[in-house]
Write a protein that binds this DNA or RNA. Structure first.
Lengths: 154, 154
DNA sequence: TGATGATAATAAGCATGCTCACGAAAGTTT
DNA sequence: AAACTTTCGTGAGCATGCTTATTATCATCA
């Protein structure tokens, strides 16, 4: 493992460091990476249900609910009751959230520029495609049982 | 953002899904992904200090300390006092941890096989190199202040 | 209509990362 | 030796993921 680095661990490290760097940059604005992701998706899907948004972002609805709690408390988003379904909420940005979008987008750009320094546009495109393939492989795999019959008796 | 997927978000998603899938597989053995990483590094560095191990894995010492607390409670590792430094511990695997190593390595292999299905060995090698470059960019960047002078007055 | 099942959101509790802060011991300087 | 500084490990507290379970509401079908 330490001799030749394990690609999964490196991938995990990169994700962790990306988040860390992004948050070093964004702390001053009161939004974390995850909250920024919510805001970004929400900005082009205002009026969406929590469930649908969780689907889009591909996180569990409860994970999103917790994020929204914080973002609502800080005045970035608003939950309005759905007149057609008393169980559900409709999600909206508050006016004060709008100006943040450009700022955060720029923070993301800067973090990416640091991270991908030395990578050609081609290489970045290549990387993106590879990652999308892996992601779809994993989304598929995660729906399947992972019981490992050969090993379960060990 | 939803039109062309953001490479940082995809990368984050892939890392999250890799962890999720690995843990679906490994839950039966009582080790999480992070704990397995500790075990893997430790298995080739027995007798190491916590600080040095945290450096190797590139996590904060406090994060490692928490992981070790759990792993010690479950009997996977052992902290022995360092005779030369009363502040420090030396880390060792317990006998019962050894047989797990091969099992977990195989779980990692299976998870990777699922994730990287459809990627040639070349493409995987390419990906690994790209990720290592990005990681080293980020490790460098994270040590630098991230104050964003143009934006701080917004 | 009235029971039965699905769905929207949340609660509880765990794991893993972080920052910030602190105590104890070690090392260094005066 | 005494006073500073550094280092080792950890406590407290937060954020974001997850699994599992619960409540309220909606939809369907007998």
């Amino acid at each position: 493992m330490p001799s030749s680095p394990n690609i999964s661990f490196v991938l995990h490290d990169v994700a962790r460091l990306l988040r860390k760097r992004f948050e070093q940059r964004s702390r001053a604005f009161g939004l974390t990476r995850a909250q920024w992701q919510v805001l970004a998706y929400l900005s082009v899907h205002e009026g969406i249900h929590q469930n649908k948004l969780a689907d889009l972002i591909e996180i569990m609805p409860i994970t999103l609910a917790r994020l929204l709690d914080k973002m609502e408390a800080r005045g970035f988003i608003e939950r309005r009751p759905d007149p057609a379904d008393r169980r559900a909420w409709l999600l909206y940005l508050t006016p004060q959230a709008h100006p943040l979008i450009e700022v955060m987008r720029s923070n993301g750009r800067k973090t990416r520029d640091e991270a991908f320094a030395g990578l050609s546009a081609d290489a970045q495109q290549q990387l993106l495609q590879t990652l999308c393939l892996i992601k779809s492989n994993l989304l598929e795999a995660c729906t399947q049982p992972a019981v490992d019959r050969e090993k379960v008796h060990v």
